[in-house]
Computed example of a mutant assay.
Amino acid sequence: MSTQYTLVETAPARLTSISSRPKNEAQNPSWGPYLELTRFSKPAGLLGAYFPYFIGFLYSVNLTNPTALSAADWVKLSAIFLLDGLILRSFGCAWNDTVDQDLDRQVERCKKRPLARGAITTSNALATTLILAVARHVLYYATLPARAGQHALLTTILALTYPFMKRFCNFPQLCLGVGVGWAVFLVDAAVVDGPYAAGSAAKLNAQDRSKAMIAMFACQTLFNITYDTVYAFQDIQDDLKAGVGSLAVAVRHHPKVFLLSIASAMAAFLWATVSCGGLMRGPFQAGAAVSSLAALVMLARLNVWDPRSCRDFFVHSQWWVSGVLVIGLVGELLMANF
């Protein structure tokens, strides 16, 4: 017998000042709340931010010249992308919590966040956000080509925009999905414009390569939208009461239809990455097949009204979709090199 849920809807959220704070706000917080603010205390969420970097990196190298990078190049670029993924996630979380502190106090899962409970001052949270934002752009300026830094600037702008969208519309997940998925273009610029591919014969012409990268961007964006919409269902009861917008709110009457449709589109673009990229040796094809099937099966079995089921989907889908794609792309590189 299925469980029935009553959704209580209210008027849209009123935009409030980010400086609004509880009376018991701390003046001299310890380091603990800062680790919470930046999510360093919850490293599992880094998977969602970093996988698009590494998938885009592996895919771009496969399209350019699978034998061009030395072991030192692989270590250097992987470390830079991992560090940026960590900084971007922490910056985004700190900024989101700063803007959303008044709304977070109305959501059961979020009301114990450091800003919402008054463990950090708003000014200190803003300073933390600024330091992280500057740090990632210094990192790119010091280590990667200019075009990669330009792509990084766009993702910073999208991260700054994201928390405001939930106050005015139900599509913040679109902003987040595009921002996270844009890592595909960022890492491709680092590979194409860097010294690693200099003098090497590209596998694809510019037009075909562009199609392949757009397909991979669409695939990653749609997957990000899928898992973040599922994640948003954890808070849908509180969000409706507070007037917070999300795709979960928008599709609450037919969630499975929406999620399975998005996942199907993701699978279609994933197969376009196989075709447009000319990766026909077998490993990436197998990875695409397993990833597509896993996403659809997990969504078919998902109970969006069970918060634990939503959390489990977020973690498991990272490995069964993105993790499997990484294995397939690594397999392509190994076959090309050996």
Rank of each mutant, 00 (worst) to 15 (best):
Y5R: 11
E9Y: 03
A11C: 05
L15C: 09
T16Q: 06
T16Y: 03
T16V: 10
S17K: 10
I18Y: 14
I18E: 09
I18P: 03
S19H: 11
S20E: 13
P22I: 13
P22A: 15
K23P: 09
K23A: 15
Q27E: 15
W31D: 02
W31K: 05
G32K: 14
L37P: 02
T38N: 07
R39K: 11
F40Q: 08
P43C: 06
L46R: 09
L46M: 14
A49D: 12
Y53I: 02
F57W: 11
N62D: 03
N62R: 01
L63E: 03
L63F: 03
T67E: 09
T67C: 07
A72S: 12
I80L: 09
F81E: 02
L83M: 13
L83K: 04
L83T: 05
L86P: 00
R89Y: 10
V99S: 00
D102L: 05
R105Y: 05
R105K: 12
C110V: 00
R113H: 09
R113L: 12
P114Q: 14
P114W: 13
R117S: 12
T122C: 08
S123R: 15
S123L: 14
N124F: 04
L126Y: 15
I131D: 05
T143F: 08
P145M: 14
H151E: 14
A152M: 15
L154Q: 07
T156W: 12
A159W: 04
A159Q: 08
Y162I: 04
F164M: 10
M165H: 13
R167G: 03
R167F: 03
F168R: 13
F168S: 10
N170P: 06
F171N: 01
P172W: 06
L176W: 05
G181D: 05
F185E: 08
V187C: 10
D188P: 00
D188G: 08
D193H: 13
G194V: 09
A197P: 07
A197K: 08
G199M: 14
A202W: 14
Q207W: 15
D208T: 10
R209M: 13
S210C: 11
A212H: 08
T221S: 12
L222I: 09
T229G: 07
I236R: 00
Q237K: 11
Q237C: 07
L240E: 07
L240P: 00
L240D: 03
A242D: 01
G245V: 04
V249F: 00
H253E: 15
H254G: 11
P255Q: 05
A263P: 01
A268C: 13
A268T: 15
L270K: 00
W271G: 01
V274M: 04
P283T: 06
F284V: 00
F284N: 01
A286T: 11
A289K: 06
A294K: 05
A295R: 06
A300H: 13
W305I: 04
D306F: 02
D306M: 02
P307F: 12
S317W: 01
W319R: 11
W320V: 05
W320M: 14
I327W: 00
G331R: 04
N337H: 08
N337P: 00
